[in-house]
Design a protein around this nucleic acid. Structure first.
Lengths: 125, 125
DNA sequence: ACATGAACAGTCTGTTCATCC
DNA sequence: GGATGAACAGACTGTTCATGT
């Protein structure tokens, strides 16, 4: 990923929401082209039982960063059903970058699960 | 917990580092009285393989909040071995609060694991 | 040097406002 | 009203500085 230029070092705690959302956005967009609000609703309903309700702005920020990095490309279409509601639809861009990013996130997700499972074991034996 | 007075609503993403550390602090202090730096080192070595290295200030902030809330109490002793190094040792305070807090965190940890496991399944089938 | 603590500052992200259809 | 985007602001936490032993 290009879009970061940290001057603060991470302590390596859990994954950030932005990165978490990005991986879902990529997957959903791979499956069928879609636009922001739709993606948000999909994610929300996926985590309905877990009390996680992401905010619309965070979705847009994630999409914008993926655009900047060339992971996604964007087009505009008129939303079906509606009169002239124009929405921004996304497609997969650079597949190399997609795969690199996926691999990164997969490791990080597993790392986070490991940390949390340790916490359950250590503190609730 | 008392020590929070949010005016911003959480979206319910992952657990915060502070809360995560608190549960370890409580458990370690239950097992044997200990002081800040020691607790930090214990936690660091526990997560050595996971790339998680918490910062000392975050440990102190967590301890201070647990003190304020009455979950812990504090005493001062002279560190063994050293000449006159005085350290702050902690003990369990209000056991009701400890148990209430533990229960809360346990649920949250499991919620987080659920979220992350969904992400692995959904995005890396 | 080790331990504790607090001030400062950067990052993430929730809230709000603006614009367009 | 639905969708997108950006500005603003608050919470969390990493970094640095201060103090005492």
């Amino acid at each position: 990923m290009e879009s970061q230029n940290q001057q603060r070092k991470s302590t390596g705690f859990l994954i950030k929401q932005r990165a978490f959302l990005k991986i879902y956005l990529i997957t959903y967009i791979e499956q069928n082209q879609s636009y922001g609000m739709q993606l948000l609703d999909d994610i929300k309903s996926r985590f309905d039982g877990d009390g996680y309700k992401p905010q619309h702005s965070e979705i847009y920020r994630a999409l914008h960063e993926l655009l900047e990095d060339g992971v996604l490309t964007r087009g505009k279409i008129v939303k079906e059903g509606s009169k002239y509601q124009e929405v921004a639809v996304y497609h997969i861009g650079d597949k190399e970058k997609v795969n690199a990013y996926k691999k990164l996130i997969k490791h990080d997700l597993e790392r986070c699960i490991s940390i949390l499972q340790k916490a359950v074991k250590d503190n609730f034996p």
